[in-house]
Structures are given as C-alpha cells and as structure tokens.
C-alpha cells in the first residue's frame, strides 16, 4: 500500500470505488462541515474536500478535511496550484499528513476571475501563483512519498504517504491531446484520476478506448465524474458554458418534459426535475461503470450532499466495502 487510505484499499480490492464531494462553507462554520460529513459518511469511500473552488474563499481544504476525518468520513484533500508556491504546498502536505490525511487531489484551480460571479464580489484582483502546475505537483507528492525528499532535494525523515490524485477533462479542447494530458499526469505519479462530469457517454467511451490502447487504465484508477443534475436550466448551462462538458439533447429534453408536467406549480417543477435528475444520475453511473477501464465514480452533488445516500443505494453501490 502506498498510503493505506480507504480509497486505495477499495481500488486495490477491485470493487468499483465511489467518491463524493464536500464543499466547505464561506465562513468559519465548522458545524456545517460536520453536518455535510455526516450526510456522506458510509455512502462513499472518500469525499473530496474542495480547495476554494471557483476561487471563492472558504474554510481551507486541509482544515475541513480534518473535521471530516473527526466525523469518520475519509477525506481527499484538494490542493490547487493557484494559491500556493512549492514552499507552502509542501508545508501544507507535511501538515496534512501529520494530521492524518491520506489522499490528495492535485488540480490547477479555477482562475481567480471566477470568484466574482452572481452576487459574489470575490477576489478577481488577487495574484495567482502557479509556481508549479498539476503535473509538477503530482511529481512533488510522489517524490516526497517514494523518495522521502522535498522537491528541492532535502531529505524528509518522515515522508507524507498520500494516495495521489489528479483531475482529467476527457472531452475539452484540444480533444486529441487530452489522452496525452492524462498520460503525463500518470507518468508524473497519479494513482487515481477523477474526471470532469460526463453526460456524453459516447464521447467519453471514445476517449477511454484511446486510454486503454495506451494502457493508462492499468497504471491509474480512473473514476468517472458524475455531476448530479438538478434542473433543465443547469443542464443547459453546463452544456453551453462549462469547458469540456457537453450534454446530449435527449437529457435536456427529459428534464424539460417533467418540468412542463408541473405546469405553473414551481415547487412541483423543482421536485419533478430533481427526481428526474436522480434517475439520470443513476443511469449515468451505470453507463460509466460499464465502460471498460473505469474503476469507479466520482459523484458531485453540488450543495446537495443529502442526495448522495439515495443515489448510491439506487445505483446498487451500497453498502460500501469495509476494511479492518
């Protein structure tokens, strides 16, 4: 075992892995993290604790991950390259490991301009760091863990043992380069990969065929990304505005149909769309898991953590494997 994390054990067992996501709050409300952790505990093998997603200031991934751990939920701490240089990154990795964290997902991070959206002022004038990029950060974690060395070469008496993750957007531009992108992350040392949300199963399967030809599915555990849709509007938005996400018209039509059934009743329209969204989610989970080379799913129910229990049970993925 590289890290001994629960996620690593599930993947090693050959059973399909399930990860979920926990978004920390925009205030010092640790109770909120505990509440969300209790909703997820037992229904996933580990939960990503986002690191100021969309560049919005929130409880740090490490702090929220430790709270999740205290609640009995295994966390995947996330680390963006946006906010820290390699000194701060390694210091936080050592700290995270010392606090008992065992999984880390390396990501570039959304640009700080994303933070000013809707009603949020955010910090669009912040300076970004990008001292290292995702591939390089993955390499740093691997060097720390396997060679017991800092990036600069100084020895680590106690190495941080992380199960190393990276993200992958299979269908973003330039599409024919995306398999190379994944290969570089795997070559750098990514033990597991969580993909961007998949709705276009055909597109995903065609990319996975290339991945299998390259043998990458045997060198890393690919968890297909599932973003739980809540409404027709959300699907349309993701189709038009989220990079690398295309949503087949048939799914948007299904959502529109149930919305229309509710007529003028807005509450009913929301409930019917949510129910349809859960049905679509379960179908997508099966389709992703049936794709050769896929080792699990990463389910994102954004600000809807309470939906995870029902989804995992309906998908036949409950109970989750347990290890002593």
């Amino acid at each position: 075992m590289k890290s001994g994390s629960n996620l690593e054990k599930v993947i090693a067992s050959g059973k399909p892995a399930v990860t979920a996501e926990l978004g920390p709050p925009m205030s010092a409300d640790g109770h909120e993290v505990r509440k969300k952790a209790r909703l997820l505990k037992g229904f996933c093998d580990a939960a990503n604790i986002t690191d100021c997603q969309t560049a919005v200031v929130r409880i740090s991934s490490i702090a929220a991950a430790v709270i999740a751990l205290q609640e009995g939920l295994e966390p995947v701490m996330q680390m963006t390259c946006r906010d820290r240089n390699r000194i701060a990154m390694q210091a936080d990795l050592l700290g995270g490991a010392a606090l008992g964290l065992r999984n880390c997902l390396c990501i570039a991070g959304d640009h700080q301009s994303f933070s000013a959206a809707g009603r949020l002022k955010g910090h669009p004038g912040a300076k970004n760091v990008y001292d290292v990029d995702t591939c390089q950060l993955v390499g740093i974690l691997k060097k720390m863990r396997d060679e017991g060395k800092q990036e600069g070469g100084d020895p680590l008496e106690v190495a941080p043992k992380f199960f190393i993750g990276a993200s992958w957007t299979p269908m973003a531009d330039p599409v024919d380069f995306r398999p190379v992108n994944l290969m570089k992350k795997v070559n750098a040392g990514a033990d597991f990969i969580q993909t961007q949300g998949i709705y276009d199963i055909e597109g995903f399967r065609s990319q996975m065929e290339k991945i299998r030809k390259m043998g990458l599915h045997e060198r890393t555990a690919i968890l297909g990304g599932i973003i739980v849709p809540k409404s027709a509007m959300m699907l349309k938005y993701m189709d038009s505005s989220v990079a690398g996400v295309s949503v087949p018209k048939s799914l948007i039509d299904r959502m529109n149909k149930v919305k229309a059934e509710a007529g003028e009743d807005k509450k009913k329209a929301r409930e019917l769309q949510e129910q349809e969204g859960l049905r679509i989610t379960v179908e997508l989970i099966h389709q992703v898991l049936e794709t050769p080379g896929v080792k699990g799913v990463h389910i994102q129910a954004i600000e809807w953590e309470s939906a995870i229990e029902g989804i995992v049970k309906a998908a036949g993925l409950y109970p989750r494997p347990a290890f002593d």
Binding site: A108, D133, W168, D173, P174, V180, K184, A243
Partner: peptide, 12 residues
Amino acid sequence: KTLMNGPCGGTN
C-alpha cells in the same frame, strides 16, 4: 495560469 505541461480543463 503559466502552465508548463499542457492545458487545464478550462479550454473552451
């Protein structure tokens, strides 16, 4: 993002 090893997931 001054990335050195390829695009991020944000290319649209």
